[in-house]
Every structure is written in C-alpha cells, then in structure tokens.
Simulated scan of single mutants.
Amino acid sequence: MTGLPPHPHPDAANARRPDELYLTPPPWDIGRPQPAFAGLAEAGAITGRVLDVGCGTGEHVLLAAGLGLDATGVDLASTALTAAERKARDRGRPARFLRQDARNLVELGESFDTVLDCGLFHIFSGDDRTAFVESLRSVLVPGGHYFMLCFSDRQPADGWPRVHRVTREEITASFADGWRIDSIEPATIEITADPDGIRAWLVTTTRI
C-alpha cells in the first residue's frame, strides 16, 4: 500500500522514494488484510481475476489467492514486492507481483474482474487522479468491481496535514463517467501507529 506516509511527518514521507518506505515496516503494513477487505472476501464480493493496485507487501493479493482466485499485485516499491513474493512462498499461495505504475495499467495488456485499492486513490489529485481512474477502467471488464479504501474527510488533519482527505463529492465526481457507484460507506484503515486507525471510506464501484 504505497500511498500512506510511514509516520506522522508527511513532509519527510513525501521526499522519500517508494522503495525507502519499506526499509522498516510502515504503519499500514499490519501483517493481515484490512478488515474491510476481509469482510468483502467473506461476503463473496471478490471474484474472478483480481488486481491489487498499490499492493505493498501483498496481504490483499494473498487474501484473493487464498480464495483460489488468480491474483496479481502491482506497486512501485521493489522492496515491498520482494517481501510480498516471500510471503507468497512462505504461505504456499500462488500470486504474481509486478512493478508497475498504477496510472498506466493498460501496459499490462490484461483484464481483471475485481480491482482492490487500499490507500492509493487518495494520494492522487488533478490530472494524476484522472489518469488513475482511466487506467483502472482500461483493465477492468464491463460489470467488474473496483473496491477502494481511502482517507476520509472525517479524519482529523492532525498529524496528516499533507495527506488528502477525500470527500464523498470528490469520489462521485471522479467516477461520474463510465462507472456506477454502488456504495460509499464509513470504514477504518487499521495502522500499527494508532489503535483507532484512520477514518476512511469503503467505496464500491462497477465499470459500465
């Protein structure tokens, strides 16, 4: 999940390259799937070929692989991808991890039924956000689902002044063309640095 800063000093985090974020375990790397995504798996919502964008050390890719699904994760942090591959070997779960910019997923030349995103959408703004949403649409099959956890504007700015806290209106605007927004629900992103976690939105969209 290369997207959240590794500590409550975002100025320093923004200056770091993706690989450097994983030199020590970052707070979003909780060693298990986020409860919101685990709930989706239990409900049978994660299906078909699965892509996790900004996969970090791979917990959600391995969650999908554990369901017997074809699972791929992409990230720009090679250190995280190496850790993800090691986890896959240790757990005996077939999964694929690729170094790929999530704004250019069309380069994969593949299609997916489900896309997962924990903590990536909210790092983009302006043209980058537009490119990211178009990139998602380029690889998601019609009728496929994009599930996203992002920082919510309900989260206080204290400690996170440079992390964009997303409003419902921004989500609606971003997915206004070629998508159906099925739900935007309050959720939590668990982190190791704060037992209360981060206030988030769990968003379900369908590509149309």
Rank of each mutant, 00 (worst) to 15 (best):
D153W: 05
A187F: 06
E42K: 14
R199Q: 15
A131H: 06
F124K: 04
A102D: 02
A15Q: 15
D75E: 07
P142W: 04
A157M: 08
R207E: 05
E169F: 00
P8S: 09
A64Q: 12
D11Q: 12
V141D: 04
R165H: 15
F175I: 04
S78R: 13
G159C: 08
I181S: 05
A36V: 01
T2L: 10
Q100K: 13
L140I: 13
A102M: 06
D196Q: 14
F175W: 07
N104Q: 15
A95G: 01
W160N: 11
E134H: 05
Q155P: 03
G92S: 13
P142I: 04
A38P: 04
S78D: 15
V53Y: 01
G48Y: 11
G143S: 09
G197V: 07
V115A: 09
V115P: 03
V106R: 15
F121W: 13
E170V: 01
F97C: 09
T205P: 03
I208H: 13
A43Y: 00
D75S: 10
P25D: 14
V203I: 15
A176Y: 03
C150E: 09
L21F: 15
G58K: 05
L202Q: 14
E169M: 04
L120T: 12
G178S: 09
E42I: 07
R89F: 00
A38C: 02
T130P: 03
G66A: 07
D128Q: 08
A95P: 05
D113Q: 13
P156G: 12
R93N: 00
Q34C: 07
L21Y: 15
C55V: 03
R103V: 02
A36S: 14
T205K: 03
R165L: 13
E85Y: 02
P26M: 08
L21T: 06
A157P: 00
D128A: 15
S174Y: 02
L23I: 05
L76H: 12
L105Q: 05
K87S: 15
R165Q: 13
D70L: 08
D19A: 00
V74K: 04
H145Q: 12
A80C: 11
K87E: 12
A131T: 10
S183G: 11
A173R: 14
D113W: 05
T79P: 00
D90W: 00
G39D: 15
T172G: 03
R103S: 05
S174G: 14
L67M: 15
P8E: 10
